[in-house]
């Protein structure tokens, strides 16, 4: 019984941590959307900023992957 409750806690925690992935998705969408908005205003400047775009996406996504990692750790490693 004790173990069941512990398992339940793990799964609930993992599920909550997975929300972070969705939040990261919002962040990545924000970065990409703002880049597109800027690129459409000034298309000539856009190619020079693709590196910045990818760095921004990478940073936003890294946090989502941290959340995913927490979920995985809760599921498998705790």
């Amino acid at each position: 019984m004790e173990g069941d409750i512990a398992n339940m806690g793990q799964f609930i925690g993992a599920g909550l941590a997975a929300i972070g992935s969705g939040a990261a998705a919002i962040g990545v969408g924000h970065v990409a959307g703002n880049f597109l908005a800027g690129a459409l205003r000034n298309p000539s400047a856009a190619p020079g900023q693709t590196a910045t775009l990818f760095i921004g996406i990478a940073f936003a996504e890294a946090l989502g992957i941290f959340a995913f990692l927490v979920a995985l750790l809760l599921m498998f490693a705790v």
Binding site: A62, I65, F68
Partner: peptide, 13 residues
């Protein structure tokens, strides 16, 4: 940490 976990995490996921 973020540098390594990003790559491994993305691949694993």
């Amino acid at each position: 940490v973020s540098h390594s976990v990003r790559l491994a995490g993305a691949m694993m996921a």
